[in-house]
Design a protein around this nucleic acid. Structure first.
Lengths: 186, 186
DNA sequence: CCAGACATGTAAATTGTTACATGATTGT
DNA sequence: ACAATCATGTAACAATTTACATGTCTGG
């Protein structure tokens, strides 16, 4: 589980409150590690209990707003974690299950509509990522940090592009009519 | 959650026992939906309680081996489920978190070794998929079912290829030495 | 008879999701 | 004063992972 380390990373980049972090997860960080605000609050409390981050109240903010900052121990933990091997990502795509189910059932479903709908979502996401790319990574000083962050964004872009390609191919197959009985090609 | 429907799909393709299904998940189906044998046993019991599958003891098998087969109600449920919209896949990649953490920490980790190690895993998986492809999908009759199953396999192949590409780019960046202090490019 | 593979499960701990609760502040 | 939004959390549940438990059959 990398949620604590994703949070530590986010706090390395900049301190922030729970909601601010939730917003960052909904944007850049969430492109490769999703988390809800409940998870974030719970995890921040754990990180503080572990002595990895420290929170201070923000009097200007509303309610009981607190800002979290990473401590040296948190930085050390993050560095330690970097040395660990990364287990392969879980790989769970409902749509692949659906395609295979459709194959086993022999069509007769409106899966094509669902594919088209999700394609639109991925196209929207791709456009957003490309917007980020042109905004943040257009011919700037290519420092190591900059290049790494760009690479992570590019990974997201290529994922979306791949998804769109595959969806297009899937639509092609899905839209070929099911033969009445068993018409051989030749 | 699509585990029950992944199981129904597997049982549409061919009946089988818990362990047999676990093996199939470890091979073809697990390429896009992973599950452990504990999950599978529990879920099979639920599917049977729901009246979607039926199990019969296999006397030739060892112990209390049972074979599960899908019932008409299970087939109907699978068809119903196909019409539902697919939520976008969760998208959680530890390695992306690590790359970003490395960026924030400014190097000084042996992340490159971990990336290289995982690249080897993905190359192995890719070779396996390509073996399946040449074995099962080499110039055969292109029925709708056949093409859909091929597409799912191709999706796995392209995912692995993309991962390998991205890993290579990551290695390039990671292996550029960190400047001593803050050396501008020009 | 014993080791090892086969086969199915139980139990506990962790992680993730969903719905709701609480209170403060801002704008009207 | 009231609604909307900001901000943090609790509670209950669902899913997943990990470790262990139980019994059967096969081969030596």
């Amino acid at each position: 589980m990398s949620l604590p380390h994703a949070l530590l990373t986010a706090l390395m980049e900049r301190p922030g409150s729970g909601l601010e972090l939730a917003e960052r997860f909904a944007r850049s960080i969430g492109h490769f590690w999703h988390a809800t605000h409940q998870q974030i609050y719970r995890e921040l409390a754990r990180l503080e209990a572990a002595g990895w981050v420290q929170s201070t109240p923000v009097p200007e903010g509303r309610g009981r707003k607190r800002s979290y900052a990473i401590l040296p121990a948190g930085r050390a933990e993050l560095l330690r974690w970097l040395g660990e091997p990364s287990p392969p990502p879980p790989l769970r795509d409902e749509l692949m299950v659906r395609l295979r189910a459709d194959a086993a059932l022999g069509g007769h479903s409106d899966l094509a509509a669902a594919v088209a709908q999700r394609t639109a979502m991925h196209e929207k996401k791709l456009a957003l990522y490309q917007h980020f790319e042109s905004k943040d990574f257009a011919g700037k000083a290519a420092s190591r940090e900059h290049r790494l962050r760009h690479l992570v964004l590019k990974a997201g872009i290529r994922q979306e592009q791949l998804w769109i390609e595959l969806a297009r191919e899937a639509l092609e197959v899905l839209q070929t009519p099911v033969p009445a009985k068993d018409t051989p090609a030749a």
